[in-house]
C-alpha cells in the first residue's frame, strides 16, 4: 500500500492512466497524484485546460485527457515530480515516456540505460531518446525514454550504471 511502502499499486497506476482510446491518439499526461495535499502548480502550468482549476487547493488534480496535447509543461512544474507524459504512438513496439529526472550526470540521447519500476527495481533496458534541460525547466530536466509497450505502466525511473 502506497502510504506504507511509498510504492503506488498497479491499481493506483491504472487509475492514473488515460483510456486505451486516448493513449492510441498520441502523447498524453499521466498524473500520479494520490494524496490530498495543498498544491496546484499543475493547473497553473497547464495551457490547454486539460488540468482543471482547483475548487479546493487540497483536491486531487482533475484531468480531462481529451484536452491534453502532451506538451510536458506540467512535468517539470510539479513539485512532487508525479507527472509524466506517455506517447503510445512512438513506434510499433515502443512507447515514449517523458519523465522528470533530477540527478547528475544526465544521460545522453542515444544511451541505453536501465528502466526501473516504482520500487526502484531494474526491469528492462530502455533507450534515452532526448534530454531537455532548458532554463525554463528550472533544474528539473525532462528525459524521453523509449520503452517496450509491455513495460509502459511499469517503468517510472532510470539508472545509468551497469
Amino acid at each position: 500500500m502506497l502510504a506504507v511502502t511509498g510504492i503506488p499499486t498497479a491499481e493506483d497506476v491504472e487509475k492514473a492512466f488515460p483510456s486505451e482510446e486516448r493513449l492510441a491518439q498520441g502523447p498524453v499526461v499521466v498524473v500520479e497524484c494520490y494524496q490530498s495535499i495543498p498544491c496546484n502548480p499543475c493547473y497553473t502550468a497547464c495551457r490547454t485546460g486539460a488540468i482543471k482549476e482547483f475548487e479546493d487547493i487540497n483536491d486531487l488534480p482533475t484531468v480531462d485527457h481529451s484536452l491534453c496535447n502532451g506538451c510536458t509543461l506540467c512535468v517539470s512544474n510539479c513539485p512532487g515530480l508525479s507527472i509524466m507524459v506517455v506517447d503510445m504512438t512512438y513506434t510499433e513496439e515502443e512507447a515514449l515516456l517523458k519523465i522528470p529526472y533530477e540527478f547528475l550526470p544526465l544521460p545522453e540521447a542515444g544511451q541505453m540505460v536501465k528502466g526501473l519500476d516504482r520500487a526502484g527495481q531494474e526491469i528492462c533496458d530502455v533507450k534515452v531518446v532526448r534530454v531537455v534541460n532548458s532554463k525554463a525547466l528550472d533544474k528539473t530536466p525532462v528525459i524521453s525514454i523509449a520503452v517496450k509497450k509491455d513495460f509502459v505502466k511499469l517503468v517510472r525511473n532510470i539508472r545509468m550504471e551497469g
Binding site: L2, A3, I7, Q35, L116, R118, G120, N157
Partner: peptide, 16 residues
C-alpha cells in the same frame, strides 16, 4: 504509515 507527502516517498522509493 509514511508521515510525509507520499509524492516525496515515491521519489525516493523509485530510486530503490
Amino acid at each position: 504509515q509514511i508521515g510525509g507527502y507520499l509524492v516525496h516517498a515515491s521519489k525516493v522509493r523509485r530510486m530503490g
